[in-house]
Simulated assay, not measured.
Amino acid sequence: MTDRLPHEKGFHVSWDQIHRDSRALAWRLDKQGPLEGGAWRGVVAITRGGMAPAMIVSRELGIRTVDTISVKSYNHQAQTEPQVIKAPNPEMMGTDGEGILVVDDLVDTGKTLELVRKLYPKAHFATVYAKPKGRPLVDTFITEVSQDTWIFFPWDMALQYVEPYRGKD
């Protein structure tokens, strides 16, 4: 038995690491689209966490058509029922999202991707990180982490002193 809080089983991601992992995601997606030559029609970032990876993926793949879908599913670190608060351009998405690459930083329980997949069932869903509960909803990812791991992304972090894992000595 441990007296650590669940979020203390942390996976800390630096800006360099998210950049490397997002580039690896782009390499995995290169020439995998449904259009001629394996191209994609566009990239949609799930905001906010998907914006940095989507920017890197779109740059690496030379995709200039980029939009966002804003889904709110967390409220002060507590998960809530996801809801779309900003949809991408309907002309870009078409009726089913075919040829669109939807990018997010992480699939956790899968509730966000489940909602977006219902709206755009033929889109390709890619995340940098995946947890087991959400993994079936993502088509492509780079790194899997355990369900009880809390991922600390660089945009949520500040540099500060941290106690040693085993306590003070």
Results as ranks from 00 to 15, higher is better:
residue 26 A to R: 03
residue 26 A to H: 03
residue 26 A to V: 02
residue 26 A to L: 05
residue 26 A to T: 05
residue 26 A to K: 03
residue 27 W to D: 08
residue 27 W to T: 01
residue 27 W to A: 05
residue 27 W to L: 13
residue 27 W to P: 00
residue 28 R to F: 02
residue 28 R to P: 02
residue 28 R to V: 04
residue 29 L to E: 04
residue 29 L to K: 01
residue 29 L to S: 03
residue 29 L to T: 03
residue 30 D to A: 14
residue 30 D to N: 14
residue 31 K to Y: 07
residue 31 K to W: 06
residue 32 Q to V: 01
residue 33 G to R: 08
residue 34 P to H: 14
residue 35 L to M: 14
residue 35 L to E: 13
residue 35 L to F: 04
residue 35 L to Q: 14
residue 36 E to S: 15
residue 36 E to H: 12
residue 36 E to F: 12
residue 37 G to R: 08
residue 38 G to E: 13
residue 38 G to Q: 11
residue 39 A to R: 15
residue 39 A to D: 12
residue 39 A to E: 14
residue 39 A to M: 12
residue 39 A to P: 09
residue 39 A to L: 13
residue 40 W to H: 03
residue 40 W to I: 07
residue 40 W to M: 07
residue 40 W to K: 07
residue 41 R to Q: 13
residue 41 R to N: 14
residue 41 R to M: 08
residue 41 R to T: 12
residue 41 R to I: 03
residue 41 R to W: 03
residue 42 G to R: 09
residue 42 G to H: 06
residue 42 G to D: 03
residue 43 V to S: 09
residue 43 V to N: 12
residue 44 V to A: 04
residue 44 V to H: 02
residue 45 A to N: 06
residue 45 A to M: 08
residue 46 I to Q: 08
residue 46 I to S: 12
residue 46 I to C: 13
residue 46 I to L: 15
residue 46 I to W: 11
residue 48 R to D: 03
residue 48 R to M: 05
residue 48 R to Y: 11
residue 49 G to E: 02
residue 49 G to T: 00
residue 50 G to S: 03
residue 50 G to V: 04
residue 51 M to H: 08
residue 51 M to F: 15
residue 51 M to S: 12
residue 51 M to N: 11
residue 52 A to W: 01
residue 52 A to D: 00
residue 53 P to Q: 05
residue 53 P to F: 15
residue 54 A to W: 07
residue 54 A to V: 09
residue 54 A to Q: 10
residue 54 A to D: 10
residue 54 A to N: 09
residue 54 A to P: 05
residue 55 M to K: 05
residue 56 I to R: 04
residue 56 I to W: 01
residue 56 I to T: 08
residue 56 I to S: 05
residue 57 V to H: 06
residue 57 V to F: 11
residue 58 S to A: 15
residue 59 R to G: 13
residue 59 R to A: 14
residue 59 R to Y: 12
residue 60 E to R: 10
residue 60 E to Y: 03
residue 61 L to E: 08
residue 61 L to N: 10
residue 62 G to C: 12
residue 63 I to Y: 08
residue 63 I to T: 10
residue 64 R to C: 14
residue 65 T to W: 05
residue 65 T to L: 10
residue 65 T to C: 01
residue 65 T to R: 11
residue 65 T to G: 01
residue 66 V to H: 11
residue 66 V to K: 09
residue 67 D to R: 07
residue 67 D to F: 06
residue 68 T to P: 00
residue 69 I to W: 02
residue 69 I to N: 01
residue 69 I to F: 01
residue 70 S to Y: 00
residue 72 K to T: 14
residue 72 K to G: 04
residue 72 K to P: 01
residue 72 K to Q: 09
residue 73 S to I: 05
residue 73 S to K: 02
residue 73 S to G: 11
residue 74 Y to D: 00
residue 74 Y to A: 04
residue 74 Y to M: 11
residue 76 H to W: 06
residue 76 H to M: 05
residue 76 H to F: 13
residue 76 H to Q: 14
residue 76 H to T: 10
residue 77 Q to W: 11
residue 78 A to R: 04
residue 78 A to S: 06
residue 78 A to G: 00
residue 78 A to Y: 03
residue 79 Q to G: 00
residue 80 T to F: 05
residue 80 T to K: 13
residue 80 T to I: 15
residue 80 T to W: 02
residue 80 T to A: 12
residue 80 T to H: 05
residue 80 T to G: 00
residue 80 T to V: 15
residue 81 E to T: 13
residue 81 E to W: 02
